[in-house]
Simulated assay, not measured.
Amino acid sequence: MSEALWALGRGTGVAALLLFTVSLVLGIVTRSGRSIDRLGRFGLAELHRTASLTGVALVVVHVVTLLLDPYAQLRLVDLVVPFLGTYRPLWLGLGTLAVDLLLAVTAVSLLRDRVGPRVFTAVHRLTYALWPIALLHSLGNGTDAGSLWLDAVAGGSTALVAAAVAWRLTPSFRGRGLRHVRTDRELVR
């Protein structure tokens, strides 16, 4: 049973990283106001939300299975307070920090209508810190760290996110995005 929990914990962690990569890229495309093929802007936003929430569910399974696995030796405090773990405290702590950020981003995203656009935007920007922290956790912790397949997943994910963020930082994107911010604010008034 312990091996099954360990495999499920590892698999859900990697799958969550992949979904958060997709979510981050889709979030940037959504913010651009563009659509992908026949999805349209609303379909794209829904796909972004679905990838995000599915990633959150996978993180929950990842954490619970590793908490139940006697080999992982996780304690409840390790799930909340970063860098207290006995096994690879830095890498485990990065995972805990990523979960803490994920909880904040998820809660504010689900309460978007109640917290307002400024709070939503400010907290949602934490995903730009969350993603690399989760990536570092996956590269430094666990039995697959340093394996060719995980390095390939990490490299491909990093390339996608780097390209999307670079595009997000271009002047043409920023100008287009600012018009959408003004429109959002006008709708709030």
Rank of each mutant, 00 (worst) to 15 (best):
A107V: 15
W167M: 02
L58V: 12
V153T: 11
G13W: 07
N141D: 08
S109Y: 10
S32C: 06
L84C: 07
H62D: 07
L8I: 15
L8M: 12
V80W: 12
V63T: 15
S23C: 10
L66W: 10
L178D: 13
R189K: 10
H137Q: 04
V22G: 04
T86F: 04
L92W: 09
S147R: 15
A51F: 07
L103S: 04
L5G: 04
A129M: 11
D78R: 02
V181F: 06
T12S: 15
T183W: 07
G55V: 06
D144G: 04
G93N: 10
F20Y: 13
S157L: 05
W149Y: 15
A162N: 10
H62N: 15
V81Q: 05
L110E: 06
L178M: 14
L58S: 08
G142F: 12
A145Q: 13
M1C: 02
L187T: 04
T121E: 12
T50Y: 03
T170N: 05
F120K: 00
G155W: 10
Y128P: 05
L111T: 06
T65C: 14
D151P: 00
A164S: 12
R38D: 13
G155H: 07
A98Y: 03
D78V: 04
V99L: 15
L24P: 00
P171C: 09
T30N: 11
A122F: 03
V56Y: 06
L53N: 10
A159E: 05
A104I: 11
G177Q: 12
E46F: 07
G95N: 10
L26S: 04
F173N: 09
R125W: 10
L66G: 01
L76I: 12
A166H: 08
V123P: 01
V165S: 10
R38C: 02
T65W: 11
E186H: 07
A16E: 09
G85N: 09
H180N: 03
E46L: 12
F120R: 00
V188W: 08
A154H: 06
V64R: 03
L102C: 06
T121C: 00
N141T: 08
G43I: 05
A164G: 11
S35H: 09
W91C: 02
V188D: 08
V115L: 08
G43E: 07
G11A: 13
N141R: 04
V22F: 07
A166R: 12
V81M: 08
E186T: 03
H180Y: 14
R176M: 08
G146W: 13
P82N: 07
L84A: 08
G9F: 09
L110Q: 05
I28T: 02
Y71G: 01
V59I: 15
R31Y: 09
E3Q: 12
W167C: 00
T96P: 11
L126C: 05
W6Y: 05
G177C: 04
W91V: 02
T12H: 07
A4I: 10
E3F: 05
L139T: 03
L67W: 14
R10F: 03
L17W: 15
F42N: 11
A154K: 09
S32A: 09
L8K: 02
R114W: 06
V59F: 11
T86P: 00
G93T: 09
R41C: 02
L178G: 03
R75Q: 13
H180W: 13
V99K: 01
A98Q: 01
G93L: 14
L135H: 04
L90Y: 13
A159G: 08
R41I: 14
T183A: 14
V165W: 11
